[in-house]
């Protein structure tokens, strides 16, 4: 490749583009400021948009200088990532899809391209073609960087929400002195079961609970994995000196468990949360007594 042999000399298309970007920095930024991407994000003043455009042009020039026009991880892009993320986020908030943001980024190319063609007037058509190709590759990489940044933002958001969901979905409720309960709602997977186990066991220690009730009324299906997790939780609670009661097993789930051939023999089960609470209170020696004259007794 002749470009590589001549790397470092001002003659390569990459360096020509770099020099062009540095020379025309002001003009490019001015033109970009009129593009919807910059205009709608930097609404306070046009100068602000121009300044932001200059930062991006500088970053592009730096990447071209490092001869890494195709590398989205090039050091030059580091400085503009935050700005690109801000711009992307602002456009997403305005209701644009990722594709639309992407095409707005693509719209940054034509004004620069026109400038480049005007700038290289008098060069051979061959040379002109090389330079424009390099420029479009460079802007394509910029687009890629912007998309990457947007994606990682979204990923971070999903991770944060998943954590929040974990916390929200597994509250530990103190039902009585020495009795705690966890109402499980939604599908149980390994990560969630682990979280449930940890929060329940920590609550057992914090509240000095002798009994822990796992209520699975809100769990739509029970498979062998979920059953295994339930048994693990029960076993761990027992090791800590607390007794674990599983309540709210619905008829369909009971059938599934029997069909799967799962042995929950070591697990104490009750039909409803009320029954489980009644059992725990009875074991604690606190009986519920009806004050009505006709019937006095405990569940």
């Amino acid at each position: 490749m002749p470009e590589h042999e001549a790397a470092g000399s001002p003659g390569t298309p990459t360096h020509a583009v770099r020099d062009f970007l540095r020379r025309r920095r002001e003009q490019i930024a001015q033109r970009w400021a009129d593009e919807p991407l910059f205009r709608t994000v930097f609404t306070v003043s046009r100068d602000e948009a121009v300044e932001a455009g200059k930062v991006v042009v500088d970053a592009l020039a730096q990447v071209a200088d490092a001869q890494r026009v195709e590398d989205p991880d090039a050091a030059g892009f580091t400085g503009v990532r935050e700005q690109l993320a801000r711009m992307g986020a602002a456009r997403s908030r305005a209701g644009l899809s990722t594709t639309q943001v992407s095409s707005e980024l693509a719209a940054l190319l034509p004004p620069v391209d026109n400038l480049l063609v005007a700038d290289l007037e008098g060069e051979t058509p061959e040379r002109l073609r090389e330079c424009t190709t390099t420029l479009s590759v460079l802007l394509g990489t910029l687009r890629l960087v912007a998309m990457q940044t947007a994606l990682s933002e979204v990923q971070a958001l999903i991770d944060r929400q998943r954590l929040q969901l974990l916390e929200v979905a597994t509250p530990v409720i103190k039902l009585w002195d020495g009795i705690v309960a966890v109402p499980l709602i939604g599908t149980l997977d390994s990560a969630r079961s682990q979280g449930v186990m940890e929060t329940l066991l920590n609550a057992v220690v914090d509240q000095h609970a002798r009994f822990a009730i796992l209520d699975i009324t809100g769990v739509p299906t029970v498979d062998s994995l979920v059953a295994q997790h339930l048994m693990k939780t029960v076993a761990a609670a027992r090791l800590m000196g607390a007794e674990c009661v599983v309540s709210g097993i619905r008829p369909a789930i009971a059938q599934t468990i029997v069909h799967l051939g799962l042995d929950l023999g070591t697990v104490k089960t009750r039909a409803s949360l009320a029954d489980a609470l009644g059992y725990c209170l009875h074991e604690l020696g606190a009986n519920i007594v009806n004050v009505t004259p006709d019937g006095a007794g405990h569940r």
Partner: peptide, 19 residues
């Protein structure tokens, strides 16, 4: 056996030692 910590209980159960 008294006062087993939650983390210890989980580890034992994961090891298959339900004792």
């Amino acid at each position: 056996v008294a006062g087993m910590r939650p983390a210890v209980a989980i580890t034992l159960v994961e090891l298959g030692l339900t004792l």
